[in-house]
Every structure is written in structure tokens, then in C-alpha cells.
Design a protein around this nucleic acid. Structure first.
Lengths: 156, 156
DNA sequence: GTTGAAATGCTGTGTAC
DNA sequence: GTACACAGCATTTCAAC
């Protein structure tokens, strides 16, 4: 009896379903069934299974931050002393401006993305929060100029 | 008559709607209306307006790549000679493994995220595609170890 | 912004194959 | 996996306020 399966076998129809739900997560099961050529009940069962197995984590709205006055998008490479890594990560994860935070290979490296209303807000965040965090030894910051592709963790 | 407005004024109810749709994009308008305390018709009108104005770009399924056997997630910092920047960006954007690609501040820097089945596939991509692209002067690669936070471009 | 109403479509569940 | 059926909801689009 294995509850925590980490790997799920999916077929081409599952892949089509995922792709269609990725383009439009509010499509009805009925329309989805027509597209993939399965019955509505079968499609529902597949989606439920995909969610139970954690393949589909949730359905989300994709927002354009620029349109609501959030004009600065930046990536940070933050180096932290090993002893403070988890503490710093927990503190950073709490910040509203931080949208993603990952631990990467390299010398105690955190990779962070954050959104700011303007450069002033970014500078304030860096000076008053980031630089004051425990164990931070280096901060590299890059600001976004142009989006060539953004499909957010979805590989076709 | 201004068609291309780049900035939209939204209020607290819009913000609640966006947050709720971000948690669960398949919620019904009826339930959404109950949550935000507006009529169903008003909520529908607001969502339609948010989509028309480009605030909500679309609704997407959030996938856990690990669950379908895609075990390596990596970020790349790619430096390209200015003359080849757009050409290289266009070529990289076409690659299936590349999930996001941004032009960042810095010396013709591209920031890229990609997903691979395993390290072997990553190495193959780097050797056979990335290193052969025109104008590429430097490649930095970091592999993901742990996800502390991932909210994908949504700031609360 | 609101309510109400009518037509249509969708979902959840059950049956049988 | 399919098909069918049925009840209950949801959506769309009116009109009237």
C-alpha cells in the first residue's frame, strides 16, 4: 500500500487535456471532451485523478503585473552562509513582493523573483529588508527588460 | 479614443476577485459573487473587463513537472553579443524545454528557465543547442534543489 | 450597481453495457 | 472506457429599477 507515489504515468490524452487546460482553465468538461475525443465522464475522471496525484496542482489566473501598476520585475541571486540559509529563506518567503524563491546549486544560493511598483520600492526592499537579513553575503540583482517567452513551468 | 491603455485602475473588489481566481480559476461566478459580496452579474462584468484590459491574461493549469517525470529544473544566465541577441532569443524561445526567457539588464543578458527529464537531457541541450547558437559568449547554469515559494508572477 | 426571469448549457451522480 | 438519463446548478441575456 503505497500512498506517496512520486511519479505518475500519463498518456497522450492526459497530455492533451493538460495542454488545453493550460490554455484555458475555465473550459467546460463538455468542450474538453469534444476536443480530446473522449466522453465527458472519462475526461472528468482523468482530471480528478490528475489532481489527486498532484500532477495538476491547481488552476490559476495569469496576471499581467504591468497592467495594474507593478512596473518592475527583478531576479535576485542571493548568497547566504549555510548556517542561515533556511532562516533567510523563510524570512524572504514571507515578503509580499517575493513571488518565487528557490534553493539552487552553488554556494548557498537562493534564486528569487520579486515584483515592485517602481525602482524606489525595489531599492527600499533591498536596503531595508534584504541587506538586513542574517547571513547574507552577496546579492546580485537583474531587472527585466523584455519578455520573450513565459509559460511558467509548463513544458509541452 | 484611446485603445492602447497600458495602465488600468482596479479597486479592492477586483483585487479580491483576482486572488480568488488565482487560488482556484475554476470557481463558478455564483460562488465568486458570494465570496466578494457582489451580484453574480457584476462579478461577471468585472472579470470580462479585467480580461479585455489584459489584467487577466488567461486561466492556466499549474502543473508539477516532477510528477510526470520531469526531474530537472534549471535557470540559465546567457550572455549574447548585442548583434545576435534577438536572433538567439528567437531560437531559444522555440525550444520545447525552455519555459521562460527574458531579456535582463546587464551585458546582453538573457535569463532562461528550462525543464529536463534528467541531467543527461540537460547536458545534451546545452552541448547541441545552446553552445551552438550564434553570438553566445557565456552560459551560467544553476539547477534547482528546493522550492521555498512559487507563486508565479502574482503579488498579493 | 441591483433583482428577477427564461432559455440554454453544464455538472454530478447513478444506471447499464 | 461508452451511452443514457435525471436533478440541480450555472451561465447568458434580457428587462426593469
Amino acid at each position: 500500500m503505497e500512498e506517496n507515489i512520486s511519479h505518475v504515468q500519463i498518456d497522450d490524452i492526459d497530455r492533451s487535456i493538460i495542454q488545453l487546460l493550460n490554455k484555458n482553465a475555465r473550459i467546460s468538461y463538455t468542450d474538453l471532451a469534444k476536443e480530446v475525443g473522449l466522453s465527458r465522464v472519462a475526461v472528468q475522471a482523468r482530471i480528478n485523478a490528475l489532481m489527486e496525484h498532484g500532477v495538476i496542482e491547481r488552476f490559476a489566473a495569469v496576471i499581467n503585473p504591468e497592467k495594474i501598476g507593478i512596473h518592475v520585475s527583478a531576479f535576485f541571486n542571493v548568497e547566504v552562509s549555510p548556517a542561515h540559509l533556511h532562516e533567510a529563506a523563510a524570512l524572504l518567503a514571507e515578503e509580499q513582493v517575493v513571488t518565487s524563491l528557490y534553493h539552487m546549486t552553488g554556494p548557498s544560493k537562493l534564486h528569487m523573483h520579486a515584483l515592485f511598483i517602481n525602482h524606489q520600492e525595489m531599492e527600499q526592499f533591498m536596503k531595508e529588508k534584504l541587506y538586513k537579513m542574517p547571513g547574507i553575503t552577496s546579492v546580485e540583482c537583474q531587472v527585466l527588460i523584455n519578455r520573450y517567452k513565459s509559460r511558467m513551468g509548463m513544458r509541452l
